[in-house]
Design a protein around this nucleic acid. Structure first.
Length: 188
DNA sequence: GTCCTGATCCTCT
DNA sequence: GAGGATCAGGACG
């Protein structure tokens, strides 16, 4: 405890290293914790990345310093939680696609209106919902504060690399990473 | 201002 | 497997 996760390094490497780390959110409703099991990297020269066309009001935090949250609203009902990964001025991030619930499971079940463990956080919209992450959490420091990443286990030997999900440009890029065999991954 | 798209999830067939 | 929900941001004029 008390160790800090380092956000230093290139975005693709960070997406891999985030697997196995702990995502924590302390709120007035309670604390929820999960182990990250699936991520996707979004690069500045990648047409699927929100930073591809330069900075806009929405993507301001994506172009800020690394180690902060970038949260956006999509499809009129869901939020996606990302981690800013590149130095200020470069718009890159890592999408947290799935986690394995470890603590605060009852609160996650309440927020999701679902009981089955595999249905709680097996997708980016589900993770944001179960963790109570909304647009208010955009731009948060993730090393300290109520929403943060703490070092977990090293799972580098179990990482599977595939193409990303749900995008219409840059589909051929191998920028999705997940832990082999983990039942909380969104799709195999 | 209008139009359209989207890094999703759920329900129903 | 298909379709609908539902809205903010960006492109365009």
């Amino acid at each position: 405890m008390g160790r800090k996760f380092s956000f230093y390094g290139n975005t693709t490497d960070l997406a891999r290293r985030l697997l196995g780390q702990r995502l924590i959110h302390e709120s007035s409703e309670g604390t929820v914790v999960g182990k990250i099991v699936e991520t996707e990297a979004y690069l500045s020269d990648d047409p699927a990345c929100h930073g591809y066309r330069g900075e806009t009001p929405r993507t301001k935090t994506l172009f800020g310093p690394p180690g902060r949250s970038y949260v956006y609203f999509i499809y009129g009902m869901y939020h996606c939680f990302n981690i800013v990964s590149a130095p200020a001025g470069v718009g890159e991030g890592v999408l947290i696609r799935a986690v394995e619930p470890t603590d605060g499971i009852e609160l996650m079940q309440f927020r999701r209106s679902r009981n089955k463990l595999e249905d709680l956080t097996s997708g980016p919209g589900k993770v944001a919902s179960a963790f109570g992450i909304t647009l208010k959490h955009n731009g948060f420091e993730l090393t300290t504060g109520p929403l943060r990443i703490e070092p977990g286990s090293s799972e580098s030997r179990k990482v599977v690399t595939t193409t990303r999900i749900g995008i219409s440009r840059g589909e051929d890029l191998l920028l999705r990473f997940y832990l082999k065999g983990n039942p909380h991954v969104s799709k195999f």
